[in-house]
Design a protein around this nucleic acid. Structure first.
Length: 591
RNA sequence: GGCCCAGUAGUUCAGUUGGUUAGAACGCCAGCCUGUCACGCUGGAGGUCGACGGUUCGAGCCCGUUCUGGGUCGCCA
């Protein structure tokens, strides 16, 4: 095979007994069981093989070595006298004639034990990521990521998409997230920016006549991290299609994603085409979220009128939402924890009462609803054994808190959550505009590139005041899986005239459009095809497939929450000479 | 930036109302052990209890400040 090995550490079986072999790998463990008698576990990328030490000569070599050193072992394959059928190579062992030290591990105490690295403190794991990745459990997520990316590439190519790379050094974009800036040495005072997404480039590709584009695209946004959002950089399956409608994009995704999820996922079931489509407003009303987990069969009901004037102070003057759970069996302690968890996550309180087995209203705020028991039971469809979770506040707050409550209840009641599957849905008909919370003015709700439902005509009516702009929806959609938003996408606005009208409503003119998106606007003036696309997050897909809660588990070299690379020591200070070349003066650094 | 939680041995953690010499497991070191496979047995080393200040006769524990990490909200067109 190579100079260093004839086989991998997961290759030898009974059929190889008697053969002369050479293996190389890390010395994972040494079990000494007697004078000059020990078992060495040799590990490489592929697996482990037992090496049996039976001579003083071999023992001396092993004795002088720390675990995690790399060695090569030349010897004979032998059938074990005591087999371990739990291991692929458990029926054989290698009797060495020669052991060579390839790379010495200089430390007998490691920052953590490799096989238990997932239990160690995360900062330590990130600093010693090369040790962490030796742990098969950790490494396997990275292998999964490779397989998923390869499968996505194959499927997209199969569907006639071309993988085209777009620039990493580009221009700062005026809206959206905070940019990462790169000073331009040849242009003092000017900056490149790393792309937040290849959005404008892919639309330019459409205007260039590329029919179907995709890319596993690196994206950079200087925003704070979350459990499911890594700081700084991430990857998207970015795609765009010419002369395409919303349905065309849906059809591609419904064809590409489920087989990959079913093959590589923790669960083997994935929604088939077509995925359920839920209008944005309906999703908020029914599931309390624009990214509902459809594995949970609970829904949110409105109880505002039902409980108006019941005397419970938090409900007064507010929208009230209810989540009813049948056959509720969780203990009081769990209910308290549920309410605490909801408040931690949503910042708003949850309330509750139950209809017990005898049909009596009990617990929580039951005394406030007792006098209208009949109406409550009928309106909410309660049966004995029901739990009713309640939230209150302004409409959106009550909805969203109920959404959090619904998710937590799903986790608490296995009967109401068919967990072992990937349940996809599309959220469609997003509003085009909203009133900005800070400005109080009309603003784009998501992005200004989407085609309004109704086109130029509806925008004209909004401009003339015949139509409330807040009622205009866009051909904008999200793909959601198990409560995780994988991506937004849209049918783009490719018509300069419609674009100007869309911007006019938020108080911007043609000059502003030109100034903000010069290349794209200009290109669209030369005859652009209608086009649509989407960009599901690769990291989140792999997370779902691996069943991981933290995005760091599926990234080879992740940064920590504070956007620091603890392994490489980034960000770091640089030489004054570098700053001078870039025309940068550091004005103040807090120490 | 706001809020919540956590910092004790190399690692993961326990530590009672504030009270003698701060413990356990794994790891490490030494010895024993000829079929282990999470090997076993015996012994040992290893601690500025994140830092600073305060209360107290006495602080790992109480109070204040601060640093670090994680979660969450803001933010992410």
């Amino acid at each position: 095979m190579t100079q260093n090995r004839t086989h991998t550490c997961n290759e030898l079986r009974l059929e190889h007994v008697g053969q002369q072999v050479k293996l190389s790998g890390w010395m994972e463990n040494v079990r000494e069981v007697g004078q000059n008698f020990a078992f060495v576990i040799l590990r490489d990328f592929y697996g482990t093989t037992q090496v049996v030490i039976e001579t003083e000569e071999m023992m001396d070599i092993i004795h002088g070595l720390n675990k995690e050193s790399t060695i090569s072992v030349e010897g004979t394959v032998r059938e074990r006298s005591s087999k371990n059928t739990n291991l692929p190579t458990g029926e054989i062992e290698v009797v060495p004639e020669k052991i060579e030290v390839l790379g010495r591990c200089q430390f007998n105490e490691l920052p953590f034990q490799v096989g238990r690295s997932r239990e160690a403190d995360e900062s330590l794991r990130l600093k010693y990521r090369f040790l962490d990745l030796r742990n098969p459990e950790v490494k396997n997520n990275i292998i999964l990521r490779c397989n998923v990316v390869a499968a996505i590439r194959a499927a997209m190519t199969d569907h006639g998409f071309l993988e085209i790379t777009t620039p990493i050094l580009t221009a700062s974009s005026p809206e959206g997230a905070r940019d990462y800036l790169v000073p331009a040495r040849k242009h003092p005072g000017k900056f490149y920016a790393l792309p937040q997404a290849p959005q404008q480039f892919k639309q330019l590709l459409m205007a260039s006549g590329i029919d179907k584009y995709f890319q596993i695209a690196p994206c950079f946004r200087d925003e704070d991290a979350r459990g499911d959002r890594s700081p700084g950089e991430f990857y998207q399956l970015d795609m765009e299609m010419s002369f395409a409608s919303q349905d065309d994009v849906f059809a591609v995704m419904e064809d590409v994603l489920p087989p990959i999820f079913a093959k590589y996922g923790t669960y083997s079931r994935a929604s088939g085409a077509p995925f359920r489509r839920i209008a944005y407003n309906d999703a908020l009303e029914t599931y309390g979220s624009d990214k509902p987990d459809l594995r949970i069969d609970l829904t949110v009901q409105d109880a505002t009128a039902l409980l108006a004037g019941c005397g419970f102070e938090p409900f007064a003057g507010n929208t009230v939402k209810a989540v009813v759970v049948t056959n509720f069996t969780a203990a009081r302690k769990q209910i308290d924890k549920l309410c605490t968890d909801v408040e931690v996550q949503s910042g708003k309180k949850a309330y509750w009462f139950r209809l017990d087995d005898k049909g009596e209203l009990v617990g929580g705020i039951s005394k406030f609803v007792a006098e209208r028991k009949e109406q409550v039971v009928e309106a909410l469809g309660l049966t004995p054994g029901c739990f009713v979770g309640l939230t209150a506040g302004k409409k959106r707050d009550a909805q969203k808190t109920a959404g959090v409550l619904r998710s937590k209840l799903g986790l608490l009641c296995p009967e109401h959550m068919d967990k072992e599957q990937y349940a996809f849905c599309w959220i469609v008909d997003f509003p085009m505009y909203e009133i900005g919370e800070e400005s109080g003015e009309l603003e784009f709700c998501h992005n200004p590139f989407s085609m309004p439902n109704g086109g130029a005509a509806v925008l004209d009516k909004a401009i003339s005041g015949e139509v409330d702009p807040l009622t205009i929806t866009a051909y904008q959609y999200d793909i959601v899986c198990n409560g995780v938003e994988l991506s937004s996408g849209a049918v783009r606005n490719h018509d300069p005239e419609i674009m100007i009208k869309a911007f006019q409503l938020v108080g911007l003119g043609e000059d502003d459009v030109r100034a903000k998106f010069p290349a794209m606007y200009n290109a669209f003036c030369y005859g652009a095809p209608p086009h649509a696309g989407i960009a599901p997050g690769v990291d989140r897909i792999v997370m779902l497939l691996a069943g991981e809660e933290s995005i760091r588990e599926i990234i080879p070299f992740p940064m920590n929450k504070n956007a620091q690379d603890l392994l490489m020591g980034a960000p770091s200070t640089v030489e004054q000479k570098q700053l001078d070349e870039l025309h940068i003066a550091i004005t103040a650094v807090e120490e």
